[in-house]
Simulated scan of single mutants.
Amino acid sequence: MKANSVFPFQFELFGNLYHYHYLFETLAFIIGVRVYYYLKKGLADPISDENRLWIMLGAMLGALIGSRLVAVLETPQALAHLTLSVLYQSKTIVGGLMGGLFGVEIIKKIIGVNIASGDIYVVPILVALFVGRIGCFSMGIDEPTYGTETSSFLGMDLGDGLKRHPIMLYEMFYLVLLFFLFRLIKNASLINGDRFKLFMVMYFLFRFLIEFIKPYQPLCLHLSSIHWSAIVIFIYYYKFIFRMVDSIFIKNRQHG
Rank of each mutant, 00 (worst) to 15 (best):
M1S: 11
M1R: 01
P8F: 01
F14L: 14
G15I: 04
N16A: 12
Y18I: 05
H21W: 09
Y22F: 14
T26A: 14
G32C: 14
Y37E: 14
Y38E: 15
L39D: 15
G42H: 12
D45T: 07
L57Q: 04
L57R: 00
G58D: 07
I65P: 12
G66C: 05
S67W: 02
A71L: 03
T75D: 15
Q77C: 09
A78F: 12
H81I: 02
L82Q: 05
S85C: 05
Y88R: 04
Y88S: 12
Q89G: 13
G95P: 07
G96H: 04
F102Y: 13
E105R: 00
I111M: 11
V113P: 11
S117Y: 06
D119S: 09
I120P: 11
A128M: 09
L129V: 02
V131G: 13
I134P: 08
G140C: 05
I141Q: 05
I141K: 00
I141C: 08
Y146T: 07
E149V: 03
E149N: 04
S152R: 00
S152A: 09
G159F: 04
L162Q: 11
K163P: 08
P166Q: 03
L169Q: 02
Y170W: 07
M172R: 01
Y174P: 02
F180P: 03
L181S: 10
L181N: 06
L181V: 13
R183K: 12
I185E: 14
I185A: 14
K186T: 13
A188N: 15
S189Y: 12
L190N: 11
I191M: 12
G193F: 10
G193Y: 08
F196P: 10
L198H: 05
M200C: 07
F204N: 02
F204A: 01
F204K: 01
L205R: 01
F206L: 02
F206Y: 11
L209P: 07
E211K: 01
K214M: 11
P215C: 02
P215M: 02
Q217H: 07
P218D: 12
C220H: 03
S229W: 01
R243N: 15
D246I: 05
